[in-house]
Design a protein around this nucleic acid. Structure first.
Lengths: 242, 242
DNA sequence: CGCTATTTTGAGCCGCGTCAATACGGGTGG
DNA sequence: CCACCCGTATTGACGCGGCTCAAAATAGCG
């Protein structure tokens, strides 16, 4: 049997196994679904083409047709205020959902830019909600993820010092890298100092100074964009997690 | 026919007409539902007994069995940080949902306290999601309200000056009172200066000073807890809405 | 009418932003 | 391979907004 007629139908099938064969499925929408439910989810999820750093998945004002899950790489979400100043809202790792704030008004509220080579999973919203009506586990998981998004914004709203914000930021990244099977002790900051500063509502100079202070205290080692956490307990004390 | 045997079944029926006869239904969960759907929602919604100022609807750590809609009065939500310091997360007017952040972890993440005499509607979560599976409009509206909650936290996370925060706060209250049929020009601040300050991440002294500054400029009139907005445009310029 | 909690007002200080200069690094062309 | 350039990051000096501390004024309540 020629290879072409053999692999072709298999590949088409493979293309659709977006969730059931995904290593991130327990962090993402499929969590809690069984085999048959996941197969139905597979039938509506599409892969986005790979995106290069700087490209946008969507922009504020775009009509909301789908929600997205990060598949690989890292995205940042941001808005532009009335003076055109960028406001970074978050950094999004594989398995995390983005675009959830667009459900309510039906238009995307923020811009989503790839920080490196990145891919996303596209979940057409009408089909997803239709499927959620039929699969109670899926409905529940979508609500959980929406709820989680609310919780994740609360710490940002607190009034915290520069050191508290930076420590929380590093610990949050560490935890999320750990959940994804990477080292939670040392990792690369794909985002620029400017993006970090903007996200933490600090000046870039302050970000530099706080990182240096942490390094001088022996809590972290910083080399360019590579960080390793040498004293997680000290960071936790500063971050003052609830 | 004796009145007792006549009114009794009617009253029992009335007690269940929680949503369909509610003036807040277009701001709340029932938005977009037709008559028969709303009747089914009525069958699962319960009224909480009236609560006095200082009483709690739920506390952080309580198991999440229901989500709640404010029916009358005002609540504040808050957490306690590791030093036991209160962190006010929001003020909640009639028609607004609370407890949504509890869906994800299954436990309430914050405390909810009545600021005056207040009542809530109780929606048992399992029954609500079950019903949402059967009523696409209800599922959609719940997701919209969850999404709205995300959007509402974003402005809080920005780094804004004391005047920007106060102006935004006053305009937000004005808008929400207006939506509920009250005057958006003058209203009563049911929360204390201390609660306002805590919510805006300012010192109470700063709240006093900013209010005084706004009054000196002729933008508002403050008498004790009664406020009237005399120059909404000026406030909007300061608040710098997106 | 007194007691206490809340709000207002004033004085001083500190963390962080702003402005400015320098250092570093990665890419480009000779 | 090196010289150059430009964007990113670091470091230093200084000023200001808002917090802290302290005290007076006002309101709510028994």
């Amino acid at each position: 049997m020629p290879a072409s007629s053999d692999t072709s139908p298999i590949d088409i099938n493979r293309l659709r196994q977006v969730c059931s064969s995904c290593s991130l499925r327990d962090l993402c929408v499929p969590l809690g679904l069984g085999e048959p439910e996941m197969a139905r989810l597979d039938s509506i999820v599409e892969k986005s083409p790979p995106m290069k750093a700087g490209q946008h998945l969507f922009r504020a004002g775009d009509p909301m047709r789908s929600i997205y899950a990060v598949r690989s790489g890292t995205y940042k979400s941001y808005t532009l205020d009335s003076e055109g100043e960028e406001q970074v809202l978050g950094f999004h790792l594989p398995g995390e959902l983005v675009g959830l704030d667009a459900i309510h008004p039906g238009q995307h509220q923020c811009n989503l830019m790839a920080l490196d080579t990145a891919m996303a999973c596209i979940m057409p919203f009408d089909e997803l909600t239709q499927l959620a009506s039929e699969l109670p586990g899926l409905q529940r998981q979508i609500m959980r993820l929406l709820s989680k998004e609310i919780t994740s914004l609360v710490p940002m709203a607190g009034d915290h010092s520069a050191e508290e914000r930076m420590a929380s930021f590093l610990l949050s990244l560490a935890r999320r890298f750990g959940e994804r099977g990477y080292s939670s002790r040392s990792f690369r900051l794909v985002m620029s100092r400017r993006d970090i500063a903007n996200y933490l509502r600090l000046a870039t100079e302050t970000v530099s100074r706080v990182l240096r202070r942490f390094q001088d205290k022996g809590w972290i080692s910083v080399d360019r964009r590579d960080v390793s956490l040498d004293d997680v307990e000290a960071l936790r004390r500063i971050a003052d997690e609830t």
